[in-house]
Design a protein around this nucleic acid. Structure first.
Lengths: 344, 344
DNA sequence: TCCTGCCATGACAACGTTGTCCAGGTTCTA
DNA sequence: TAGAACCTGGACAACGTTGTCATGGCAGGA
């Protein structure tokens, strides 16, 4: 027990190190390092002996130590809102593919739309010394990241811009998309259109609401307070909003759903409604084609890919000024958005 | 330039270290460590001085170094098939929540159903010395993980069992679920039922096919070769399979879809078909309720949670024998599975 | 034969942190 | 007041790897 007295916990289950391999192969430590990393300057015979020792001992290089020495982790962090949301799956996957192409791994975590949790996560990732950070912000103040960014952590924001700091952002044109969607409804004869979105705290939600108002204004149409939901993705509140808008003194004949969560609930609510109501949603959702739901589609994978590519360009030394990239949307007409206004 | 000659790359962008903080605060290195880690034995006054220095320099502890020293990374790896698949989102998220509750971060990667890529990823995670590994296997030989597991990497397999090694596995009862689903169709009068699943290489796919055959046999029904698709989730091939089964000499009156990918394609194909065809699918999918699709639902989040809890029990020292946990399924009757057989 | 130069190899320090141990000072007790 | 007990603080080594540099052997040319 004496010789392990200084080793309170079995480190990594007492794995063999390069030193052990070197001893076994009867070579120096650095030679093992050379073999493991495929560096030149090792005789085939020596290499074979080292490889055998590696095999026998079941050695695997400890990348923690490597990282400490090299100063690069080959890891990027992704802070998103909820990995379980079908919108973020493809985004995440796209980031992962780009990272993989650059030999990097991905650590990701969900903020659950909680600014404190976002900060905690992002800073934990910085403590791990990720080379870069991709953040889908929940909060609206990202000054806490300034020291990190100054210290060299490349950072790109996706889906929503950073708050109170100057940083790269890759966004979908929420304003334009919503305006197009609402204009589409107006073009099909609607004059009283309801908007149900997420909390206006969230940048995309605010932008989409702004797009809705712009389209109405462009067409010279008024917007009644009763036609705009206060904002929440909670199914119960969305259902209430739908019910109230359809029962208002000036009832809406069409609805615009501000994101995928809201959209599925609205689709369900309208399915139970006797009178046809036109509907356009922001975000495509699976099987929306079969249900004939017209949507403003955004490309989640493209968001992720674009952000990741920008991140790696920075990591590869590009020294561009922070910029905002805005991706367009696509209107997919499938029926629900082309229903004409129905009399009561 | 002389003093940086030995430093070819700016490590972590030249971040301050505890040494720098110590110098600034006029204390010893270890005292900074104590403050940072909230260890006792520091006067309030000293602590304040250190905190100030930390603030001014923008110091953040380098967890890479910490990990090297402590031998634990507080990180678990998750190897899944495709982060973009809506089935894996909730699973991933559930794992993340459990990890978070244990103070660990999650590195995840997609194998894209490629055994080599699965191995590459899993071993890369082991090289990073993740404390534990959760794997949704793509390959059917996991002997490559044996040295790692012996070396102390806790490993739990999810959704599909490990191949050729003895390890924990958390599975859904694919056999029972499929048998129940097919029995449900039989109970509604069907005698000629088609099965379209994924490649039988995949354990769950094989089990579901077995469940289908068992249900048919239990009912004394024959299974024609033409009723069983060779297995692929490729939409084109699924559509072909549907078409051929409906046009076979003994055409099927009902279909069983082996997973969510197959199911959406089958739903689309049947929507375009003139005659009603009964359908039950494995895996619930969003909006399936509105489309009236009867499914055998499995709980992806429960899979992830159960696996992660088992993993952390092991990390906390539990020394149980590897076991297999099987979670049940739920039949959700929504209409498509209750359509009676239709004459040609 | 001797020298030059190259090549394979290894010794050593350093990356930034934490665990151990010791020193010096203070407080309490006999 | 001496001694013990305690507390704060710091020096030092170690974690496992990689970059730098030195060394020794060997081939080739003069």
């Amino acid at each position: 027990m004496a010789d392990t007295a200084r080793r309170p916990e079995p480190r990594y289950g007492n794995r063999p190190t390069m030193k052990d391999v070197a001893a076994r192969a009867g070579v120096g430590l650095k030679t093992v390092s050379r073999v493991v990393n495929g560096e030149p300057g090792v005789t085939p015979d020596t290499e074979r002996r080292v490889q055998e020792a590696i095999e026998i001992l079941g050695f695997r290089r400890n990348d923690s130590a490597r990282v400490l020495r090299k100063g690069r982790t080959a890891t990027v962090g992704l802070v998103l809102e909820d990995l379980a949301d079908p919108f973020y799956g493809p985004l995440s996957r796209a980031v992962e593919e780009v990272a993989r192409a650059h030999g990097a791994l991905l650590i990701n975590g969900s903020s659950a739309e909680d600014p404190d949790r976002e900060q905690e996560l992002a800073l934990a990732l910085c403590a791990r010394r990720v080379d870069g950070l991709i953040v889908i912000p929940s909060g609206d103040d990202h000054r806490y990241l300034e020291p990190e960014m100054r210290a060299g952590v490349a950072t790109v924001f996706v889906d929503r811009p950073a708050g109170l700091i100057d940083a790269d952002a890759v966004l979908t044109d929420s304003f334009g998309g919503a305006r197009d969607g609402v204009a589409h409804l107006i073009a099909h004869g609607h004059r009283r259109i309801g908007f149900i979105g997420d909390r206006p705290r969230i940048h995309t939600a605010a932008e989409r609401l702004r797009g809705y108002r712009a389209a109405m204004e462009d067409a010279g149409l008024p917007v009644r307070d009763a036609w705009v939901s206060p904002g929440s993705t909670d199914p119960e509140r969305v259902r209430t909003a739908v019910r109230e808008m359809l029962a208002a003194p000036e009832p809406v004949t069409a609805l615009f759903a501000g994101n995928n969560r809201v959209l599925v609930t609205v689709v369900r609510a309208l399915a139970a409604h006797p009178r046809p109501v036109a509907l356009v949603g922001f975000d495509d959702i699976e099987l929306a084609d079969l249900l004939g739901v017209t949507v403003i589609a955004q490309d989640a994978a493209a968001l992720g890919r674009t952000a990741a590519e920008r991140l790696f360009r920075r990591l590869d030394g590009a020294d561009e000024a922070p910029a905002r990239v805005v991706l367009g949307t696509t209107l997919l007409a499938r029926g629900s958005g082309e229903i004409p206004p129905q009399a009561d």
